Amino acid sequence: MRAASGRARRSWLVAAAIAMGGGIWSMHFVGMLAFSLPGIEISYDPFLTLLSLVIPIVVAAAAFAVVGRRPQALLASGFAMGLGISGMHYTGMAAMRMAALIQYDPRWVVLSILIAISASIVALWLAFRNTNAVQRLFAGLVMGLAISGMHYAAMEGAMFLPTSAMARPAGHLGVGQAPLAFLLAGITIMILSIGIAAAVYDRASAERAQREAAALRRSEERFRLLVEGIADHAIFMLDPDGRVGNWNLGAPG
């Protein structure tokens, strides 16, 4: 994305936003699939679940776009991205349909938001600086732990109060945990596929650029030898301003 421009840059931006936002969303719902309340069935509102996926992707795209053009906006973009991640989490929580009400401890809510903002700033900082493979691996580990920390800090501050009736309107469509697991698996596979395709394309582009550069060097060398080998004809090479920039051995002194 740093090296590209135009349509290619936008394509890399979309891929990066889906990988980042979709990966964070997948982590959240994997954690939620591992969560259960004794004797209470949990399902999820389809619209809010989809909205919770859209939020981090859109926010990540905006943050990458801003920081990519204005690195000095790192803190502001990280702040906005952290709020978007927190919005994803609490929208996902609001999508839960169960015979219980959710209340939150404000202290844990604030802590989870601060973790999300800090993780976002670190992620954007690492994304737009040159790092080697070991540093990228370490950065991914740190980001994974930070996002998980945000999720479980938010869950620590959540209190579930059982009610006598299911907290959903009559006839409301809810997605059970098993269908959500299949949806999550599909989206995760899509995210991994995008990452693999981007890596393959990047490698192929780099190799193609190397081949083209090598071919250009060979062509220039052949042309130089050809020109220098002509001694009975004068050959002049002009620069863009029309001045003689170079000549062969056959040119008059």
Score class of each variant (00 low, 15 high):
S26I: 07
W125L: 01
M143F: 08
S43V: 08
L183W: 13
S43I: 01
A158P: 06
L216R: 15
I196G: 06
G171F: 11
L192M: 14
V66G: 02
V59K: 00
A61Y: 06
S219F: 02
A170T: 07
M159C: 02
G186M: 05
S86K: 05
M143V: 10
L173W: 11
W108T: 05
A4C: 04
A153Y: 01
A167K: 12
R97S: 09
A95E: 06
P38D: 12
S36V: 04
G21P: 09
L13S: 12
L114W: 03
G84C: 09
G186I: 02
L53Q: 07
V122G: 08
P46Y: 09
S112W: 07
G149W: 05
S5T: 14
A95H: 07
A158H: 09
G174W: 01
A251T: 11
F35N: 03
W125N: 09
P179R: 04
G78K: 08
V110I: 14
V14Q: 06
R70T: 12
A198G: 14
E41C: 00
F64V: 07
A146I: 05
V110H: 01
P56M: 06
N248A: 01
I18A: 11
A206L: 15
A213M: 10
L13P: 08
A100W: 02
A119P: 09
G82L: 09
G176C: 11
V227N: 10
W125A: 12
A19E: 10
Q210G: 02
A127K: 00
L183Y: 12
V67N: 06
I113L: 11
G174Y: 05
M20I: 10
A15M: 14
R203E: 08
L226P: 00
L161M: 14
G253H: 08
P38N: 07
S52C: 10
L83V: 15
L111H: 02
L225Y: 03
W108K: 04
D202N: 11
V14P: 02
S36Q: 09
S11T: 13
S26N: 01
A158N: 06
M81H: 03
S118A: 15
M81R: 01
V109Q: 04
P240L: 03
A63V: 05
S52A: 15
T131K: 00
E228F: 00
A199P: 00
S205L: 11
I55G: 03
A65M: 07
A119R: 02
M20C: 04
R107I: 13
H172E: 15
I102M: 13
A251E: 05
A65I: 01
R2Y: 01
T163I: 04
M96F: 04
S5D: 12
E156H: 13
L74N: 10
S118T: 13
L101S: 10
T188S: 15
F138T: 14
A100S: 12
A170M: 10
G186P: 01
G149A: 04
F223T: 09
L238V: 01
R243T: 12
Y104N: 10
E41Q: 08
S26G: 02
T131C: 00
A76P: 00
A19Y: 04
R222G: 04
S219A: 15
R168S: 15
R136W: 00
H233V: 08
